[in-house]
Nucleic acid binder design. Structure first.
Lengths: 340, 340
DNA sequence: CTTGGCACTCGGTCGTCTGGAGTGCCAGGC
DNA sequence: GCCTGGCACTCCAGACGACCGAGTGCCAAG
């Protein structure tokens, strides 16, 4: 079929361009891939592909380069996720198994992913709102200060210092701690607010204001979504982007420095645990329109708790990147589930 | 004095080069600074400075550029730390005051510093080993698993999951918790090991192995220095470095990605709370020989607990950078001391 | 010790030229 | 109807050379 060959040509162009980073012409295409036809025929196909908007020429008399749409078609119809090699899998296992706590798991995973893909890797901490309270601790620091520590079942720990204007006795701390514990342990964070709503009322006048301050801080800790952190590694790999630093790399670095942007990036694909690939302009984030973002959710147990992925140039090795992202997500999920 | 003028010339060269990023010649020097002599005289001075190794020419018939040694003399003898403007001081105050916890203080400080200096900023978390134990918590997770949470008086929280092969009852957790608390609260982390050495012996056979596992993990948490974290911001400012990405910026980015390197960078200057400036090759870290590092310690109370600083091109604005670094360190110290 | 003058060096820029890679189109063949 | 070889055309990239200007070092005179 003619149509089939045309797509083969597109695939070949994408593969060559990804490999060489140079516009690919009709001659070299027939040489490197056994397409069984002459360059002239390829040229006709290329003209058609260009009409469809899948490839473009940087200038007349240059080879062709895939467009964002071209990559889209490649990813959707022409490529398969490439599974990792056995060696790579073993490397992942041994690399991640030594992690001592959640921070360590995140740090190791994101570093690993950036090394596997040679791109910038991102990982979002497991969402607090979806998890449950494992423990809550109040520690008196000073007459009017209390440290509130909240431990989620994902292993994440949040701490806040509460400065109540009224003095707080150790006895009060003990009673409040017991009451709160009995209310919130095992409760989903999103439901904590409902559970502790009436606690303040159970305390009398001299103590009430301090209790109110502590409970308010607790609610704040539980509700605030801005606390969803993102960790990042491999920015040095941006070197592969191109030579013109200020043109290409700077906006990317700037975007990556903003926690909010990173969250949006990972948040855009609330697609659960299926791979999401956003190519070039499909990306909503300003400054990243020349990059592609590959993300996937990872799970604890059978619930997706957060996303991880990579950011790289649109001319990336999609099958390989997708394979690495998916593999790391699975391993992270397994570790979180086991460590539970 | 001739000698004096020579140093003035060096100062002028440094200032001009920092401002323009271009080799500075004798003519433009007399034009921009009122030195009261002719270009020819300056040329003689420049030749002398070059003999002393303080300046160099990139090539014949180009202007002069300061050498690392030239910057050294400039910093040591020719410049004064530039205090911040009132507006800047107010900005620091309002920017840092809203911090809710230690992480937040670190995050805000490092971001602020990178914005003030337009360079890459680093901040080290307050050292664990120098601080004391504020609280310790054991939480049972599963029959054989316990979560150990250690809270230092710097506000830092460390958690570890202990997997004892033997079952651990809630009763045991309670007793062990009480005993450990009574031993370690208020004790410096470095002294914890001595305090808990005999705790294991106080438990009998069926419980002893679990206790041993928990205590071992506690010691690990307390001793391990690799846990001293460093946070970093402003990598996008590396754009000011130069155009040749792979030549100049890449090794810097790579070095900055390594926690160990960052720690060394901040650790090299155990100079307490006096500003440390390491210029170019003075820097031990490979890959950063074209950068200068300005660091200073910050305190909680009257004890220096960690370092912060910036990394930038050797052609940085030293007086301004030193002023910003010192100012931010003072504010951070104040906040930590107040929040205590 | 300073200064003006002068010859010299050398990097950066501009215009020109040329080779090569690549294209589009066309006519002929299967 | 599709493929193919041929051919004219386009245009980028690199090489080459000339020129300009900024800057230097040195010297002799003030």
């Amino acid at each position: 079929m003619v149509e089939d060959r045309r797509l083969s040509v597109l695939r070949a162009i994408v593969e060559d361009y990804v490999a060489t980073h140079e516009p690919v012409g009709s001659r070299s295409l027939v040489e490197r891939h056994s397409l069984g036809v002459s360059p002239a025929t390829i040229r006709n196909d290329m003209a058609a592909l260009e009409d469809e908007g899948l490839i473009a020429q940087p200038h007349t008399s240059a080879g062709r380069v895939p467009t964002d749409q071209g990559y889209r078609v490649f990813v959707d119809r022409l490529s398969q996720v490439k599974p990792l090699s056995g060696a790579e899998k073993r490397a992942i296992g041994s690399f991640l198994d030594g992690a001592v706590d959640l921070d360590d798991v995140m740090r190791r995973s994101v570093k690993l992913l950036s090394q596997l893909t040679k791109q910038v890797a991102l990982i979002q901490y497991p969402s607090l709102t979806r998890s449950t309270v494992r423990h809550l601790e109040l520690v008196g620091l000073a007459p009017t200060r209390v440290l509130l520590v909240l431990i989620a079942d994902t292993g994440r720990v949040e701490q806040r210092i509460v400065d109540a204007s009224a003095p707080i006795s150790d006895d009060l701390i003990g009673r409040l701690r017991a009451r709160l514990l009995e209310r919130v342990v095992g409760v989903r964070l999103v439901d904590v607010a409902g559970k502790v709503a009436d606690v303040v009322e159970q305390f009398e006048a001299p103590e009430r204001s301090a209790v109110a301050a502590i409970v308010a801080t607790l609610l704040e800790t539980v509700v605030e979504r801005h606390e969803e952190r993102v960790m990042l590694a491999g920015t040095a790999n941006l070197a592969a982007f191109g030579e013109d630093f200020n043109g290409a790399v700077r906006p990317v670095l700037e975007a990556l420095e903003e926690q909010m942007v990173l969250l949006r990036l990972l948040g855009e694909s609330r697609s659960g645990d299926v791979l999401s690939v956003r190519i070039g302009h499909e990306n909503e984030v300003e400054g990243l329109s020349a990059t592609s973002v590959v993300t996937v959710g990872y799970s604890r147990g059978d619930e997706v708790v957060a996303q991880l992925g990579v950011v790289g140039p649109t001319r990336m090795d999609y099958p390989g990147t997708m394979g690495s992202v998916r593999a790391v997500a699975r391993y992270v999920g397994r570790i979180l589930t086991e460590q539970q």
